Computed example of a mutant assay.
Amino acid sequence: MSKITPFLWFDGQAEEAMNFYVSVFNDSKILNVNRYGDAGPGPKGTVMTASFLLNGQPFLALNGGPVFQFTPAISFVVNCETQEEVDSYWAKLSAGGQEGQCAWLTDKFGISWQIVPKQLGQLLSDPDPAKAGRVMQAMLEMSKIDIAELQRAYDEA
């Protein structure tokens, strides 16, 4: 078991969210589902807690009610190798949610994600401040990151 596991508090959507996320990420599976019984406090048979893996990372979900909401102050970063990977995760996770700026989106459950190509960090870390600055400026104008557009900004003379 992982030393640190993200714990997600839902208002009745824990099972739907878990199934959705497991369908989005490779190397993912449901580990365990505990349902409310006669003692409640949730409706009998509904998910109380669920544990699952996303790309090998463990998560725990709870149907805890409307007391707490998700906020963009906490997000999950998905590191991508290719534009195709960026496009796929972006399309799946933003469906029914909201696209943000600079690689950020909020999914249909209110969880924030950053879909980041590895090239972004490489280009922003260039020792030439002019190149890194052009990449930063290009990124600030994007929602979903376009690797080719970042590279064009980087290569401008």
Rank of each mutant, 00 (worst) to 15 (best):
W104K: 07
K118L: 13
I74L: 15
N34P: 02
F52S: 05
R35V: 00
E16Q: 10
R35M: 00
G121I: 08
G64P: 05
T46M: 09
N63I: 00
A73W: 00
S2C: 03
F20N: 10
M48H: 03
A95N: 12
G65P: 09
Y21D: 01
I4Y: 10
A17Q: 04
P58L: 08
T106K: 15
P72K: 06
Q69W: 03
V47S: 01
V24M: 06
D107P: 05
T71R: 15
W9Q: 15
G37T: 06
S94N: 04
V78M: 08
S2A: 13
F70D: 09
K44L: 10
L62Y: 09
V86G: 04
F7L: 08
F59Y: 15
T71D: 14
F59V: 10
G110S: 09
F59P: 09
S51W: 00
P66E: 12
Q98L: 07
K29H: 12
L93D: 01
Q119H: 07
A50I: 02
G97D: 04
I30M: 11
L54I: 12
T46Q: 12
G45R: 04
G56E: 13
N19Q: 15
N55Q: 12
V24K: 07
G121S: 05
L54R: 07
V47G: 00
I74W: 05
F70H: 13
L62K: 05
P117Q: 04
N34H: 14
S23Y: 03
